[in-house]
Design a protein around this nucleic acid. Structure first.
Ligand SMILES: [Mg+2]
Ligand SMILES: [Mg+2]
Length: 315
DNA sequence: TACGCGCAGGCATATG
DNA sequence: CATATGCCTG
DNA sequence: GCGTA
């Protein structure tokens, strides 16, 4: 695939991140949608541009088409440069810090002049962050901790590399008496060549015991969060693993939700709404009544759809 | 040209 | 304590 | 910023 497609998508995602920082909402979505379309484009973006058909790409209109053209001609996008001048912060590295998002990054920049992780580290060590609106002592120590969890590990992993890890975790959980089912879901189940993390779904009526076992598997670097039904951790090699525990009656709905993709989920949930239902990871509901949920087939059927294989759930 | 904009929910933390 | 907000998951 | 009513 043409390398330029990836570059154009990346730059549009960056524009979105800076707009996010400014509190924009819909432009952010617009740029991300365009970026995603270009990522999934089957032709070279340069060829599309040459034939003047950029605006035929879903989510690309007059304004974004112009900017793409500019980037392809000059290697730069003035719009992005301008946004960076206005908010001179290193979004890429700051965004990679766990617990920091656009709102908090904006506040840190405005009140403390934080532009990058070095500034952030200094501010945290000097205890200047606690006391900002929305930040307390806990937030500050969490930031320091996140900074220690080097973000260099934030990469995607080749499928082959995670297969043994997935199997190890699956077997361990499977062996528990209170566990009825274990499935590795997410992009792993969709058979993508690379995965951003591992998503694991467990059916059990004793979630707390499952949580406990999960949080004690081998090779954990640190835990991100842990609740009654959900936990996330990062392994020594930087791979994030998410666990979700549900009851048997929700197995199918949870499989659908956790297998994704996100866009597939949104699509299904919209169809559900149109048919007067509500779809979430617990089931398909008409009012308070569950009409499907224990199997995937059942949920698709109630939505009036044929079963869709996981590898075909990108949209 | 004006207007609405993808869905749903768990967890951590701050706030009052 | 309940509620709001932000971040994060698919 | 885009798509559509
Ligand atoms: Mg995943
Ligand atoms: Mg995940």
């Amino acid at each position: 695939m043409a390398a330029k497609n990836y570059q154009v998508a990346e730059i549009l995602y960056m524009v979105a991140d800076y707009l996010d920082l400014e509190g924009e909402e819909f432009k952010v979505r617009a740029y991300r949608r365009a970026a995603r379309s270009i990522e999934n484009l089957s032709q070279s973006i340069e060829d599309v541009a040459k034939s003047g058909k950029l605006q035929e790409i879903p989510g690309v209109g007059e304004a974004i088409a112009k900017k793409i053209d500019e980037f392809l001609r000059t290697g730069k996008m003035e719009h992005l440069e301008k946004l960076k001048r206005k908010s001179p912060v290193d979004m890429e590295s700051l965004n990679a810090v766990e617990s920091l998002g656009p709102k908090k990054i904006k506040l840190l920049y405005q009140r403390l002049g934080v532009r990058n992780v070095e500034h952030l580290s200094k501010a945290a060590k000097e205890a200047k962050i606690r006391g900002l609106p929305g930040f307390g002592e806990l937030s500050e120590s969490k930031i320091l901790q996140s900074l220690g969890n080097v973000s260099s590990n934030k990469r995607r992993f080749p499928r082959e590399e995670v297969v043994p890890i997935a199997e190890m975790i699956r077997k361990k959980l499977q062996s528990m008496n209170v566990v009825e089912k274990v499935e590795v879901v997410g992009s792993y189940r969709r058979k993508k060549e690379t995965v951003g993390d591992l998503d694991i779904l467990v059916v059990s009526s004793s979630p707390s015991e499952v949580m406990d076992a999960f949080l004690n598997i081998d090779g954990i670097d640190h835990t991100i969060g842990e609740g009654e039904k959900k936990a996330s951790l990062v392994l020594d090699n930087g791979l994030q693993v998410d666990l979700r525990v549900v009851g048997a009656e929700s197995y199918g709905a949870a499989l659908i939700y956790f297998t994704g993709s996100k866009y597939h989920n949104i699509r299904l949930r919209k169809i559900a709404i149109k048919k007067g239902y509500k779809l979430n990871e617990y089931g398909l509901f008409k009012g308070d009544e569950m009409v499907a949920g224990s199997t995937e087939e059942e949920v698709y059927r109630e939505l009036g759809l044929d079963y869709i294989d996981p590898e075909n759930r990108e949209e």
